[in-house]
Design a protein around this nucleic acid. Sequence first.
DNA 1: TAGGTTTGTTTGTATATACAAATATTTAGA
DNA 2: TCTAAATATTTGTATATACAAACAAACCTA
Lengths: 142, 142
Amino acid sequence: MKTGDSKFCQCLYFTTAALARKVEKLAIESWNPVGLSPSHAYLLITVLEEPGVQPTHLGEHLQLKPSTITRLIQKLEEKKLVVRTTEGRITNVYPTPRAKELQPKIMDCMKHFYEQYSGALGKEESVKLVQSLTKVADKLEG
Amino acid sequence: MKTGDSKFCQCLYFTTAALARKVEKLAIESWNPVGLSPSHAYLLITVLEEPGVQPTHLGEHLQLKPSTITRLIQKLEEKKLVVRTTEGRITNVYPTPRAKELQPKIMDCMKHFYEQYSGALGKEESVKLVQSLTKVADKLEG
DNA sequence: TAGGTTTGTTTGTATATACAAATATTTAGA
DNA sequence: TCTAAATATTTGTATATACAAACAAACCTA
């Protein structure tokens, strides 16, 4: 059944949740080739771009809670894609050589994902949608 | 940090996920007075409106997988808000008297939730947004 | 400089959701 | 009629995320 056929299609909770699940499914498929979930991929991209970045900063950028960031890092550490160094109360996260090798493939996945949805929605529409979602999210900010 | 400040604010996965989390948080607060999560509330509303509705049908309307529906029903059963009857391979879900008593309060929560977000976004904007999200979700339909 | 507060991170636990497989029932085909 | 396929539901397990509390370090302030 399509979202528009549901009795609840006029409720924001329902529509955002349903859309997010569909988009996540697309994203998961796109990042499958590198064996990462979308969240892990985004975190890793950030670490590759800002080696030594701290969990707090990652949380702000990815808009995820600190505990979630810890869990994501732990998994990437298991996969030997990042390493953590702790000095005092702060932690720095660095990409491993293995992560750097993987970077081009990760970017291909990102591109593939983008092409997937912009193909379905139209390029201009996609850009507008994303802008609109961002604006809405910021308006809902506590 | 606002969604618009993130490096990934131009990616659909990131924006839909972030928005859905924010909206869910608002929704959870709104339904707190009746002690239900938004999903449980929506399922219960459907059962109240269509007594005897089957899990498959619930899954289609709520756009959730059958296993998820089972789990939601189980919890509502624990709370004595629905009962299941099984005949052959089909199951019917009925609201209890307790659920019927709760219905007005549930509707109040729904209204409160709507007022929350339409207050933040503007009434017209909200309606347009929801319509737009619904259309997008349907375009992404496999 | 000692003690309380703030900051950064992690751990224990809980929730929502889904996938895959199991189960049970009904239907259809030979 | 017996078996194979389809349908409806549930169960076992896995994932992502968050909250609350624990912990540890750094910073104030009296």
